[in-house]
Amino acid sequence: MEKYILLGHGSGGLMTRQLIVDIFLRHFGDDTLQKLTDSAVISMNSHRLAFTTDAFVVKPIFFPGGDIGKLAVAGTVNDLAVSGATPLYLSAAFVIEEGLPVEDLETVVRSMAQEARKAGVRIVCGDTKVVDRGNADKMFITTAGVGTLEERFTDIGTGTGIRPGDRIMISGSVGDHGMAVMMARELLGFSSEVKSDCASLNHLIGKCLDRHPGIRFMRDPTRGGLAAVLCELAEMTGFGIEIDEPAIPVHDPVRGLCELLGFDPLYVANEGKVVMVADQTNADRILSTMRSDALGKEASVIGRIVDHHPGQTWMNTGPGGKRIVDMPAGEQLPRIC
């Protein structure tokens, strides 16, 4: 373990994992936590609850397509929804920097209320702390959420039902959120039309779960992007994964920016996408259902579970080559030339 926390420890990749294992799991050592799923599944009096929490820090707090408030609601709703749960209640805790315009706070809170209404969840408890100027960057929000989970969906979070031949789908384009936030920082001296995909996915996911059997795994590809989800999935199940680069939707402005900075859109964060694994026979029908939803119009089957190269993700590249897709190490860094 390092002597100090580095930014890479928050990247959602291998360094984050190392931190979780070396510090958090070592001390908390809880069986449910050990599973490292998006939500914890807890049984209480024959009811199954999904429970999750997430801290939101984003710079700037307002960006094209959303703000930190919308993100804080949608992020937690999505963590519950991808576990197969119906999100019901959220908490919201605010750490606010002294001097933040009240107007900004109200804009953020209004946007939280709006997103909660859209998702059909209630924000039922909260907390507020104010810290000295300079001790927080405008505001940080932590939300926690609970939802109910039907027994038949219990394995969705862990992916234990996955078999070779299953199809891997994504509900739309990748990389929009990460690049929108990056552009909003105005570091590059030019602007772009990239908008964050930040959105609550519980209705889209609910529709798929209600109408179709065969959904075996879901996860939202946030930090670490699509690549992190696929690598974790391959490792978790012990099967191999094969994906087709041309099938992965990436919007042109995102592709262009990634090319410019030397980024791989597969590693860029999303806040309104779900990766789904479903059995082969139901995959096409699930895809149609996703596409019938406004948030899933660009949904695509991007690959399959295979029984060769166990634990690894391989990609058929656009030009026809093959290469491995690796777990992101730390933050993606812009290149020199």
Binding site: K3, I5, L6, L7, G8, G330, P334, I336
Partner: peptide, 26 residues
């Protein structure tokens, strides 16, 4: 440039120095 920040020096990196308080901007 970002590329340099994680490059190992003899005993440390710029990334680690930044975490330890050095004023380093990417």
């Amino acid at each position: 440039f970002g590329d340099l920040i994680r490059v190992p020096g003899s005993f440390t990196t710029l990334e680690k120095e930044k975490a330890a308080g050095a004023d380093i901007h990417i």
